[in-house]
Design a binder for these strands. Structure first.
Lengths: 186, 186
DNA sequence: TTTATTCTACCTACCAGTAGGTAGGTAATC
DNA sequence: GATTACCTACCTACTGGTAGGTAGAATAAA
């Protein structure tokens, strides 16, 4: 079972560094030191691996969100940005969801559905936090939760891409901080 | 010469819909109704095609920017967002630069350089408009041009991705409008 | 004005390499 | 003896890319 988890971990890294069409079973096998065919023992197809990757990330997000339940809306948003920032810090990785977006039209339908769901979950979580945050005065009263949630996701995803182009992970942080300031300032 | 331009156009569409690793010479040849080998008459390698794609987009941006020289800073930013929105309107395409970001680490060095330059050009253009806009009072005085330029790019790029996931191009528009409001409101 | 040459815009046929994937086997563990 | 965790050995389909050829248009030389 160790091997499967390792394979998944390698795949996740490759995905975030090179995109879904940018890595192969062979790459993973090489890094693991086993044969490519053996990977099919764990993942019957690349679609299968892709789905596992998405589910994994979805589960990690859920777990992450659960830990933050007690925090204030503002702190939640801060942590959300920080989560993305930690991607950038790690070799300028980008978010899995962002990766899949680019390849979206070249993806199997089941993966498309799964990734869309994941994205929806994140948006709903953000929206919920923002609704409370706006009511509580953490954020500007004039904000609409839905649009703001989208803006936050966009800034985080886009921020990761900027960081990669500028070869500097702090760009992502300052970009999102700029937005955060705009959301709170009265 | 017509064929080369057509090939480039098809490649551009494929790139924006499926990513750089999501289309092949064969795809383009099929759509053109010529043989794959004949494409190598125009583009000696895929890297060559990729570079042409980037240069093409860079030239188009320059031309676009030149036409806007007389507009006010605020109008320029508005048009910038609208340019991205027109991508989304056209089959939920995303920005070429955003596409290349995901595949970045899997790209030939020359392409990496070229795409980074393009991104820099856009950022400088935005920054210049913002510096004037902030001084003129089009935008909040407290804004830093550099960070704001990055935030705008991030929101546009990210907004396109959101639009694709939500299968609705207007999401991109409302996301960026939300940001624009935040940048102007006093 | 004819002839010779060269260029354009493709073609067929092929290459090595890699993609995802499968069939069937083996050695160790429960 | 069944299950687990691999393996070897293969397959088909496709990738980017090359070698060599050709019909026809353009250009230059006789």
């Amino acid at each position: 079972m160790e091997t499967k988890a390792q394979a998944l971990e390698i795949a996740k890294t490759q995905l975030q560094l090179r995109g879904y069409n940018g890595f192969s079973f062979q790459d993973i096998a090489n890094e693991l030191g086993i044969k490519k065919a053996s990977l099919h023992y764990y993942f019957s197809s690349k679609e299968d691996l892709g789905l596992a990757l998405i589910e994994d990330y979805a589960a990690a997000f859920q777990q992450w969100a659960d830990k933050l339940a007690e925090l204030s809306p503002y702190e939640k948003i801060e942590k959300y940005i920080l989560m993305f920032y930690s991607f950038a810090q790690d070799n300028l990785k980008i978010c899995p969801a962002g990766v899949f977006c680019v390849d979206f039209n070249a993806l199997p339908v089941r993966m498309q559905k799964s990734i869309t769901e994941l994205q929806d979950t994140q948006r709903r979580w953000l929206e919920k936090a923002l609704i409370r945050g706006i009511k509580d005065g953490d954020f500007k009263k004039s904000l609409k939760a839905k649009d703001t949630a989208n803006l936050l996701i966009a800034a985080c995803q886009g921020g990761l891409q900027l960081a990669r182009f500028q070869d500097n992970c702090r760009v992502m942080k300052s970009t999102c901080q700029t937005l955060l300031d705009l959301l709170t300032d009265i």
